[in-house]
Nucleic acid binder design. Sequence first.
DNA 1: AATTACGTTGGGAAA
DNA 2: TTTTCCCAACGTAAT
Length: 602
Amino acid sequence: RDDVRWDRTRVVMLLMSFVSIGIGWSRIQVRTQRKNSLYRHRLQFESVLRGKRSWSSSETSMNDQKSQSNHGPVVVWFRKGLRIHDNLALASAVKYATQSKSTILPVFTLDPYFLDPEKVGAVRLSFLLESLCDLDLNLKKFGSALLLLKGSPDSVLIDFLQSKNASALYFERDSEPYAKKRDAEIVQLCEKSNVKVFTEHGHTLFDLEYLLKQCTNKKAPSSMPEFLRLMDSVGNPETPLSLERVLGVSNTNEKLDPCLQIPAEYLDSDSFKIPKSLEDDEDLVKSGYRNIDASGAKFKGGESEALLMLESFCKRDSGKAVEQFSKPHTSPCAFDPQSTTGLSAYLKFGCISARRFFHRIVSKAKTQPPVSLVGQLYWREHFYLLGYAHGASFSTMKGNALCRQIDWRTTEEEPDFARAWEEGRTGFPWIDACMRQLRQEGWLHHLARHSVACFLTRGDLWISWEFGQKVFDRYLIDADWSINAANWMWLSCSAFFHQYFRVYSPIAFPKKYDKSGHFVRKYVPELKDIPDKYIYEPWNAPADVQKKAKCVVGIDYPRPIVDHSVASKQNMDRMSIAFAANKESNASTSKTTPPTKRMKKA
DNA sequence: AATTACGTTGGGAAA
DNA sequence: TTTTCCCAACGTAAT
């Protein structure tokens, strides 16, 4: 029997290999064509640098450069993209500055809009400062440096451009609503000040505007299978640039490019210094970052660290970690080290290029998107594209075309539930451990995020996902506007995912990964001596067991704030009502605006 | 038009 | 221990 099956398998495989040769060949043809088109793009890209018209959707087009007499410095404005490798804005600026024999001035503006512990937690701000320091060091290897400007970009950046008589401004486009508005204002002000502005894509695998144009009906895919078809149609992203290659040097010692030599006056001045830590900086302390603990941070910000982490993950388990990577099989309970790459925050700030990450691992993987490592980059791309296409409404329930309208309870209605969840005092060890890890380290495994998000919304507490989104946005070092909003809609069954009867149990779910509760014992130390049997449900431990573990529920550790089996069932009923109501309202809105189909029929 | 297959990662009993 | 099916049953897209 086995032999027969084996033979049949071999025959099938043999046939398939012929077929796949055919497929492979047509793929090669497609790839070649695509390469050509990429190459064409590259040529046009070069021509941008020579002063011709831009092929990309730069906000302002460039006039004939040769007629320009302004040889003032070229300012590169860093916001995300805190790296020198594969930085298209920096690379373009280098070419422009070389042509116009001018100097590059890299700047970062520390925008007071973000300097609020309610918006940006101490751990993420520390990560940013570390990333800025590292970028400064990396620029210094080339004779340059990062200049920090404190204040709102529309005043400090514009003042800087004017006072230095800058000829051009370069930056990487940002798809988030706040950034888009901010950048549009800067472009306008630059036009008035006669500073030319050039923008490049770079934060995502593809230029989002380009991706949107490739979509059928210019509508961003709303499911992963649909998004994968889009990825299939556009092929691989461009290979990453290195600054050395842009400069035409093999190493930094060879020769320092003149356009990157920063005048000594900038290095000597104290006014552009990057604070080493939150407490060291008077302005940050004034903004409220006083007595705020960032010591739990586990990830050190910066490009250098990101590249080391990528390499070390590639070596993990002799390459098997990358080869066999399958997200659902990674553990949310692993913390030393975590089971995933831990690169999310570095991608968020652009300390590492998504394209560099992609090309480093794409040929190694034996698993497929969406569970593979490339799949993880695709999820990021997918949600970035959706956020870009839908704009500001993407992160709110009301006015959001994608989002199911649900009568969640507000934090005002359930202040105790909301606070217990945020502070890790729900009485569910798994939920509390996750929330405490979030607050200490600013990072959680994806599945841990699922658990706590489900618990807050449709699972147990029936509190609005917008509250959860805000809390995540405050504490996560990798807080990413699009990704955060999309995942909160997903987990709360507001969009993308609809199977509301699939609820994560705060007791059963972690048992699959961590039977003895190492994770809980680390982050909720008051439970550390509770026997394995009760680690996820200490209220069920007999009184003498609780006493012996020096953890009496109700005294040393809170009682569970809800009965999970009761609450989750009640919420399923609420969900079914909410789904029906949405169906109803969707039907009535489509009635008021009759579709063209009906016209045809008539 | 009606039906079916599927969706990155649920839980739990039974086999 | 691992796999399979059922729970009560979603929306979307393909057929």
